[in-house]
């Protein structure tokens, strides 16, 4: 009971009994928190990914070292990353988790954006240059739209893995729906743990579907071909 009390410091709702009924507020509360973490992390990741990708694309010399760095970041287990960020952001708030997720997102996105840009056919970019597009306008108006399918694929991957990874924070008393895992295992409540896992999977699938739809709406030209 003592452990549970510290875990639920503040006023989050508390799972009562071994059953599901009466505990929906717990699921709702942590789902909302999970969505909030995810959105902030994705937004941060996207914000930094585009300039870095643009730079890697314009200056191809920079891409290999950037790629190597992203590989190292990706090799860090999430728990270790939380710890590594601890001295800078504190051990007891949500920041390390969100920043860690933003970093993973960044890593996935940079790679996908650059690969997407590289896959834009050379004749298209040549034509754009020939038509007199400026560099930035060509990037925003021609290259980026054509890279959307790859970028969306990266976003889907980033969103799904972020949603799934946030739960690891449960191990350190954080991590939104992950706290239901930790509490479930601590107090031996199968139902709480199972509900948490299902909620995470559903959330990930919904996010995936939303992004898939967004990609579909953003790239009408890819549909014209099959029609």
């Amino acid at each position: 009971m003592r452990g549970a009390a510290t875990r639920f410091a503040g006023n989050p709702p508390y799972w009562n009994g071994p059953q599901l009924s009466g505990n929906w507020d717990v699921i709702r509360y942590y789902t909302a928190e999970h969505i909030r973490f995810t959105l902030i992390a994705l937004a941060l990741g996207v914000l930094f990914a585009f300039p870095i990708a643009y730079l890697s694309h314009r200056r191809p010399v920079l891409y290999p070292p950037i790629l190597a760095m992203t590989n190292v970041v990706y090799a860090i287990p999430s728990l270790a990353l939380f710890a590594l960020l601890g001295p800078f952001l504190g051990y007891t708030n949500d920041k390390p988790i969100i920043v860690a997720m933003a970093l993973y997102t960044l890593v996935i996105l940079v790679r996908n954006i650059v690969e997407g840009l590289r896959a834009v056919p050379r004749n298209v970019t040549d034509a754009a240059t020939g038509l007199g597009y400026g560099r930035l306008r060509q990037f925003a108006g021609v290259e980026l739209p054509l890279a959307i399918p790859t970028i969306i694929a990266g976003m889907r991957l980033a969103a799904v893995s972020t949603i799934s990874l946030i739960t690891v924070g449960g191990a350190i008393g954080k991590g939104a729906l992950g706290r239901m895992f930790a509490d479930g295992i601590d107090r031996g409540i199968d139902v709480e743990l199972t509900s948490g896992v299902i909620a995470v999977v559903l959330l990930a699938l919904v996010a995936d579907a939303l992004l898939l739809t967004a990609g579909w709406l953003l790239t009408p030209w890819t549909r014209a071909r099959t029609a």
């Binding site: 991957l157 799904v160 893995s161 949603i163 799934s164 990874l165 739960t167 690891v168 449960g170 191990a171 992950g178 895992f181 743990l193 948490g196 896992v197 995470v200 999977v201 990930a204 699938l205 995936d208």
Partner: peptide, 8 residues
């Protein structure tokens, strides 16, 4: 991919 390993 959506399955949280920690949860499983």
């Amino acid at each position: 991919r959506a399955v949280p390993t920690y949860g499983v």
